[in-house]
Design a protein around this nucleic acid. Structure first.
Length: 279
DNA sequence: AATACTACCTGCGTGC
DNA sequence: TGCACGCAGGTAGTAT
C-alpha cells in the first residue's frame, strides 16, 4: 500500500500498539519475505526482544528492539494488522509476531513483495536498500540547491527519476503524479531540461504534497478492515491520480491517463506540456 | 554511472 | 462461465 505518507501513518499506529511489547514467538509462512538472516535465525533472534520504538526512513519501517533492528518494507501491498488476542492467520498472512501478553501483529501481503530483515542495532542507515536513499522530503534535508544540481545530470524522464528514491525518497506513483501536476511539469520531461522556475516549483510541490498527505493520514485506495494505516483521507485531495476524465481544477481540461516508464500516469494535457520532444 | 527492462506475486476488471 | 490479458500505492537484479 505505501508511499511515504502511508508508511508514516502505519509507523504512528505501530508506536501506539506495539511499543514495549516483548516478542514471545515469530511464525513465518512465506520464507522469501525474510531477506536475512535465515528464517530460523530471524525467529530466534527476535524472541525475547522488546520493541522500543519504530522509526521510518523513506518507505522503510525500522523496528528498534533491544539488540537488533528489524527493517520492513511493505512494497506494493504489505500491511500490518494488530490483534489484542491470539487470532488465526488469514489467507495472506505471511509472518506473525506473538507478544508475551498474547496480543499479535500479523504481516499480510497479497502479492508477497514485502521484505523484512534483521540487522544489528544502529546499522539501519547502512542497510542495502536504505543506504542509497536520497534525502527525506523535508527541509533542511531536501535542499533546493542540491536538488537542482542533481537534476542537471538527469537525462531520463523526470517521473521515473523521482520514483528512483535516490534524488529524494518517499514519492511513489500517486504522489509523483500529484507533484508534477502541481508544478505543471510533464512527466516525460528530461530532468536536465527543467528550468529554475520549474525545478523550484517541483521541489516545493514534493514537500507540500507529501506533508499534506502525512497530515491526512495517507491515501486509502482499497480498504482492508483493521489494517494499520488504512484510515487515510488524502484520496479526496488528489488532483490527477485516478482522476482521468474529470476536469483539471486549474484549466478545466480533462485529466488523461497514459503510461510513462511502464507506470500508469495521470496528467493535465493542457497544464503539463512536454519539453525536449518534437511534436 | 546512468538507463531500461524484467522478475517477483495475486486478484480483479474487461472483453471475447 | 471460462479464459486471456492488462493492471495494481515498489524495488532489485541484470544487461547495455
Amino acid at each position: 500500500m505505501p508511499e511515504l505518507p502511508e508508511v508514516e501513518t502505519v509507523r504512528k499506529g505501530l508506536i501506539q500498539l506495539v511499543t514495549n511489547k516483548t516478542i514471545e514467538a515469530v511464525d513465518v509462512y512465506w520464507p522469501k519475505i525474510i531477506e536475512q538472516p535465515e528464517v530460523q535465525q530471524f525467529q530466534s533472534d527476535l524472541v525475547g526482544q522488546t520493541i522500543q520504538t519504530v522509526h521510518r526512513r523513506g518507505k522503510y519501517l525500522i523496528f528498534v528492539l533491544d539488540t537488533v533492528e528489524m527493517v520492513s518494507h511493505l512494497r506494493m501491498e504489505g500491511k500490518y494488522d494488530y490483534f489484542p488476542n491470539i487470532t488465526p492467520k488469514g489467507k495472506h498472512t505471511h509472518v506473525t509476531f506473538t507478544f508475551t501478553d498474547k496480543s499479535q501483529l500479523h504481516y499480510q501481503d497479497v502479492r508477497k513483495f514485502g521484505r523484512m530483515a534483521l540487522i544489528k542495532k544502529g546499522t539501519a542507515a547502512m542497510y542495502k536498500g536504505i543506504k542509497k536513499l536520497g534525502p527525506e522530503p523535508i527541509l533542511p534535508d531536501f535542499s533546493l540547491d542540491a536538488f537542482q544540481i542533481r537534476l542537471k545530470r538527469v537525462n531520463k524522464a523526470i517521473k521515473p527519476a523521482l520514483l528512483d528514491q535516490t534524488i529524494v525518497t518517499g514519492l511513489g506513483n500517486i504522489y509523483v503524479d500529484e507533484a508534477l501536476w502541481r508544478a505543471k511539469i510533464h512527466p516525460e520531461t528530461p530532468g536536465s531540461l527543467l528550468n529554475t522556475t520549474e525545478s523550484t516549483a517541483l521541489h516545493e510541490a514534493i514537500i507540500a504534497v507529501l506533508q499534506e498527505a502525512v497530515e491526512a493520514g495517507g491515501t486509502t485506495i482499497r480498504t482492508y478492515q483493521n489494517a494499520l494505516g488504512e484510515a487515510g483521507s488524502f484520496q479526496t485531495s488528489l488532483y490527477v491520480y485516478g482522476q482521468q476524465g474529470t476536469p483539471c481544477v486549474r484549466c478545466g481540461t480533462a485529466i488523461i491517463k497514459t503510461k510513462v516508464a511502464q507506470r500508469g500516469t495521470h496528467l493535465c494535457p493542457h497544464c503539463q506540456i512536454k519539453k525536449g520532444v518534437r511534436v
